[in-house]
Amino acid sequence: MWAAERRDVLLERLRRDGRIVAKEIAVELGLSEDSIRRDLRELASEGLLTRVYGGAVSASPAVADYATRADIATDSKRRVAAAALDLLQTGATVILDGGTTTLDLVRLLPTTLELTIVTHSPTIAAALLEHDADVILIGGRLFKHSAVAMGAAAVESASRVNADLFLLGVTGIRASTGLTTGDPEEAAMKRVLASRAAETWVLGSGEKIGAASPHQVLPLDGVSGLVLDVTGGGEALADLRETGTRIVEAGGRA
């Protein structure tokens, strides 16, 4: 089988099943596992999948740049943002991650709600200018891909925060890989923010469920729960439910 043919088979299997088990497909195609792993490495280098132990899973479209992500799954993000509003209580201190879903949440947030919001996203902070909430902006080196502050200065500032709640954004949510994102430093910053909050809830629009990115932020048991758009349903959502992780459902029940 030619390399181009193997590539088409692998991508079609990924579209159909959402994952590839290298050993199984090698036997099916009568090829060595080394050949399949080499193909998976090449496809991963093009951003077409994410390699995991034993094979590969779907790559998350949410690893695109900030401007591109603003146009991905917009309805799904709004449903998640609306559901997450119930987690915010008057008088609480809340850390908001950067990202387009948290920006939708801010746009839905009542301007008169009195609470303290901590964020390392200048975009989120600017969207709160007309709100009664107190806003604390964590500064540092601007990571332009996600429009958030990172680096040593941001970590030091974040380490002084004590919050009731952290609303975490990631690019992949999958039972087998946990909560993932595309940049190792961004993953580390998210872990620091999670460590400063009594509860961490993950905001997950539909395109993130079942997808994975290269760098784990936290395992599923490292957060309080997930706010997910369950409209699409699917095997990946069923797998998440089987883990026992608390899920707040946005949209219609799958």
Rank of each mutant, 00 (worst) to 15 (best):
S45N: 06
A238H: 08
R13F: 07
T116V: 09
L142Q: 05
I173Q: 05
V217H: 10
Q216C: 10
T243M: 12
T111Y: 04
A81I: 06
S32C: 08
R196N: 07
A194R: 11
L179Q: 12
A154D: 00
I173K: 04
D164P: 09
L11K: 12
A125F: 01
T100H: 04
T74A: 14
P184A: 11
P219C: 09
S195E: 14
L88H: 07
D104A: 15
E42C: 06
L48I: 11
A236L: 02
A187T: 00
G18M: 10
V52K: 02
Q216S: 11
Y53C: 05
G55R: 01
T181L: 12
A154E: 01
T119S: 05
R191K: 10
A126D: 10
G234Y: 03
H145M: 11
R107C: 00
A188G: 07
R15W: 04
R241V: 01
S58I: 13
A188K: 14
S60C: 11
D132Q: 13
S60R: 01
L220W: 08
F143G: 08
V230Q: 12
I124F: 02
A44C: 07
E12H: 12
G30R: 09
R13L: 15
G210V: 06
L14G: 02
I136F: 09
T181C: 15
T93R: 15
I72R: 05
S195D: 14
N162K: 14
H131V: 01
K77H: 01
S213E: 15
R15M: 10
L165T: 01
H145A: 14
T177Q: 14
T119G: 03
I138G: 03
V118D: 03
H215W: 15
Y66S: 02
E28T: 09
D164M: 13
S76F: 04
E207V: 15
I124W: 00
R79V: 04
R6V: 10
E186V: 08
A127T: 00
E5M: 12
G47W: 00
T243N: 12
R15F: 10
R160H: 15
G99V: 10
A3Q: 13
D17C: 08
E114D: 15
A67L: 03
G55K: 03
D17S: 13
I25N: 09
T74Y: 01
R253D: 01
A70D: 07
T111G: 06
E33R: 15
G206T: 09
L103C: 00
